[in-house]
């Protein structure tokens, strides 16, 4: 209430309202528990979706907020996946420390590459991220003694807290992935609602102006790039741990492209866009590939074009515009 007392009352209240947790968010998180009761035979898919959502969230932080376009973010996903796998292979299958290790390694690689990333823009940026992704893929391919090459690695993960074993039905897997996704959203939420988050949006809105208000904005970009790399690494490690395997596919260009598609379907710069996109994309893949395993990308392509043409802000952007009109 002290905020209302100051002269900047209305503006401060408005700023506060922007970061408030909405009823829809609470409903959404309650709905994520539904698979346990309604689709218990699809819990493995649900955990894949949660992992995809965390990965898409990490891309949203750099693409949706800071405006860094990437077609190589799978490198961090894969690095995280392999970090967890290699740890487990060498006798340390404890999941939570595995996640931490994946975050640290992916974040460190993110930090090193961030020096190139913040120096380029537009097409060059896409090509650099793409190139780094391809490089990482082939490195993993050629160091087959460590990574298992095209065969990948099968690993044994210990029970979480020494108690919850990864079961065949995916109860533990989904619970675990969901909790980590929830924490990821909380962290991302905190970031985008901070002054740092505001600075990132400023860079996206007009990077030309940033130096003119005294901002050394490359530092901001490097920081968020490292955060996004770590988060992608955690998502990758989750995939390794919940499936007990890792393959080169985690590093593939396809994965980098898919995650951007998910994010654009759902809507960029909205935190939940990646989650909604992951649900639609992965459910569609599951359903469509049952019907027609070879051509399912046809429908994804069609959906992607339809969304981009009809709802430039993605599904969430379209919904919020519709809702805004409705309220007015």
């Amino acid at each position: 209430m002290t905020v209302e007392m100051t002269t900047s009352g209305p503006a401060a209240t408005w700023l506060k309202r922007r970061s408030r947790i909405s009823a829809i968010e609470i409903v959404f998180w309650l709905a994520t528990l539904l698979p346990f009761f309604l689709f218990p035979s699809y819990l493995s898919l649900a955990s894949q979706i949660a992992i995809g959502a965390l990965f898409a969230l990490s891309v949203d932080l750099i693409l949706g907020y800071a405006g860094i376009i990437t077609l190589g973010h799978a490198m961090f996903f894969g690095i995280g996946a392999y970090t967890a796998a290699i740890l487990a292979k060498h006798g340390w299958g404890e999941p939570l420390t595995g996640l931490v290790a994946a975050a640290v390694v992916a974040g460190a690689v993110g930090f090193v590459t961030s020096f190139i990333i913040v120096r380029v823009q537009h097409l060059a940026l896409i090509m650099i991220t793409l190139g780094l992704g391809l490089l990482t893929y082939e490195l993993a391919n050629s160091f087959s003694t460590v990574t298992g090459g095209t065969d990948g690695l099968g690993v044994t993960i210990w029970p979480i807290f020494g108690r919850f074993d990864f079961d065949l039905w995916g109860y533990t897997a989904y619970s675990y992935a969901l909790v980590i996704l929830f924490i990821g959203v909380l962290v991302a939420r905190r970031i985008v609602n901070s002054s740092f988050g505001l600075a990132l949006t400023g860079i996206r809105e007009n990077s030309q102006r940033m130096p003119a208000i005294g901002s050394v904005y490359r530092t901001h970009l490097q920081k968020i790039y490292v955060v996004a790399a770590s988060m992608a690494g955690i998502a990758g490690a989750l995939l390794t741990q919940t499936t007990g395997t890792v393959s080169l596919d985690t590093l593939s260009f396809q994965r980098s492209a898919d995650v951007v598609v998910m994010l654009i379907l759902g809507g960029t710069g909205r935190l939940y866009g990646g989650i909604i996109g992951a649900i639609i994309f992965l459910v569609a893949r599951d359903r469509l590939s049952d019907m027609n395993p070879q051509y399912w990308y046809f429908w994804i392509g069609l959906l992607l074009m339809a969304i981009v043409l009809v709802m430039p802000g993605g599904i969430l952007g379209g919904l919020s515009r519709l809702f805004g009109r409705f309220v007015r």
């Binding site: 905020v3 970061s19 905190r190 002054s195 740092f196 505001l198 208000i213 530092t219």
Partner: peptide, 24 residues
Amino acid sequence: PIESVLLAVCERKQEAGQFWRRLT
């Protein structure tokens, strides 16, 4: 405008890099 000017003020005070503190 409030966000834009707030951003500029935060940059001047070297507070724009703080990612753990709420804007308000």
